[in-house]
Write a protein that binds this DNA or RNA. Sequence first.
DNA 1: ATGGTTGCTTAGCAA
Length: 256
Amino acid sequence: MKIATYNVNSIRRRMPLVLNWLRQHGPDVLCLQETKVTDADFPAAEFKAAGYHASFRGMKAYNGVATLTRSQPERVLHGLFTGPDNEDFRIIQTVIDGIPIINTYVPQGYQITSEKYAAKLLWLKRLRHYFDEHLDPKKPALWLGDLNVAPAPIDVYHPERRVNDVDFHIDARNAYAETASWGFTDVFRKLHPTRVQYTYWDYFRKAFENNWGWRIDHILATAPLAAKCRAAEVDLEPRRAEGASDHTVLWADFDL
DNA sequence: ATGGTTGCTTAGCAA
């Protein structure tokens, strides 16, 4: 099973790149974040024509997630099912071949002194609680998406200058680690323990050309699935392309 | 300390 994640920064803007990537790589699953479109305007028909079923939840202008699958999912779950999360536009779970696939766009947090940052830390904590209550770390499951955390110094350019950034601050890294430690393994880092490889470069100051980036998009698998991961790679082509998102595609292949 | 760019929506926010 080949599964990929891509923060598209507007699906309508990125439609040609996404369709091209699907044609070239034929993944079984593609998880999208920052679709920035209401459900009524989501381009489901175009994906259907390309051979993919789309599960999605979005809103106007911001946020929004979608999971594209070859087959119709057995289940589609929105939010965390605890209070207001049923209105959450940052998480969608699809179940394919009995495997829960949790696609998330973790809050970025704005600034470490802001309420948004506190909300980010809480969001990760509540996700951990969801895993505790609803999933089994001994069974196959995937958590992936734009997780807005660079887990270690190797995962960001000039880490010493980034200690107060919301995607690298120690509290965000600890919150992420605490949630992942429920039973998830970062399959890219497992397969490439020392590789410097980013998934996001901001639009400013030729950051991509200079490789001033961040590894903040991740694919995490429970132990039985992580053991079957045979490849995990970042594809730089979608970031090089004309009209690129500020993120690029991360994919992983599992022997099932 | 601030700016730089892109997207959505229409001047300003979010990233």
